[in-house]
Design a protein around this nucleic acid. Structure first.
Lengths: 195, 195
DNA sequence: AATTGTATATCTACCTATAGATAGACAAAA
DNA sequence: TTTTGTCTATCTATAGGTAGATATACAATT
């Protein structure tokens, strides 16, 4: 792996644990075996560095979710709404249980009032593209009645969007609360309510 | 108001905007019209100061919610589950819309891996007492079937707890996402899904 | 083959600003 | 005359960032 990628890895991990302002170039440098001035060789300033981290995180996250249109289960059938949600939940669950860290954008979003604009803008892109993914994936299922009460065509998309926002919000919140409580099972209890 | 309370107010507001590590004694001092050494007169160190902020925030929040047993509507009837949830949502809505800030504990929870233990412990107390409040308030309503599918007595409480965690998580997440998006209406769209 | 040039990646050394905190003077109030 | 609240002055550590030396590798030039 390139040194640049190592730097991005370490920076991402540190932010996901402690937040933007708790991460310094010196710490990142120490963890990657170089000096802080060498970190500045790759990323002239902290804003650039964290912007790159958020962009990479968002790309990887969406790539891991896959194209909403290509979601088919083992029988080759289109996903049901429940299957879409389960797949989506699994992505967040992996971040929390496997990485033992929060979602990068939950952390940055919580600090967003004090971040460089470039960083908070990228954080928002993560949220918006997640909502879009969920809406698209849920739209292409058959059991559309699942999502809400309305059935007028014009309200269906809005209703799915509300549902998508709700799912994203609940998962981000559940990660924060269960991590703070030191009780990761709490995440699953919330996630089960969403299916 | 006492200088001590002014300091707590300013510190709380700053953390809710930018996070723990973006707040300094000097900034707090400037905003309260004193010098940073005078801040240390009231709070020997930052951990003490923020611990006091979180404790006060939690007390005020619970006090504002009121005793779960005393929740009665204008007709003098016990609250329905929907009314309990609406009341709970209103407390978070006030923080976001009126104060124009996130929930203190959403911010601190997101940074919890890098906080002094005293602070993260108090943050967890906020979450746990909120869950307890919600469970108690929902328990004392009549329409218990609302919350989930199980009906065995032993599972009822667990089911209510899951529901409470879910509501808390969704509200905390919704605050973060809508604040980052600069679109506070998103909060209401998520909140409506919870009723 | 030896030499030179250039890009890449790293270092040491340093600068300025700020963070958290302390010591001790001073003034007003109780 | 002790307590309360504030100040000035200062310390040490760290943050973010820059300048400029150095080393290495690879290519082009003679």
């Amino acid at each position: 792996m390139s040194k640049r990628d190592e730097i991005l890895d370490v920076t991402e991990a540190m932010i996901r644990l402690k937040g933007y302002n708790a991460v310094s170039a010196r710490e990142v440098a120490k963890a990657t075996g170089i000096k802080s001035s060498s970190v500045h060789y790759y990323f002239p300033n902290k804003t650039d560095m964290v912007t790159a981290v958020v962009e990479r995180y968002t790309e990887n996250f969406l790539q891991n979710l896959g194209e909403p249109s290509e979601l088919v289960n083992s029988s080759g059938d289109k996903y049901s709404a429940s299957e879409v949600k389960a797949r989506y939940i699994a992505a967040f669950r992996h971040a929390l249980i496997h990485d033992k860290k929060l979602c990068l954008c939950a952390v940055l979003g919580a600090e967003s009032g004090g971040l460089p604009e470039e960083v908070s803008a990228r954080t928002n892109v993560f949220f918006q593209s997640n909502i879009k993914w969920l809406v698209t994936a849920l739209e292409s299922t058959n059991d559309k009645a699942e999502s809400s009460s309305q059935s007028l065509e014009s309200n269906l998309k809005e209703s799915l969007t509300n549902n998508a926002m709700h799912i994203l919000a609940a998962l981000e919140g559940a990660m924060i609360i269960s991590q703070t409580a030191g009780d990761l099972s709490m995440f699953d209890r919330v996630a089960n309510e969403l299916l």
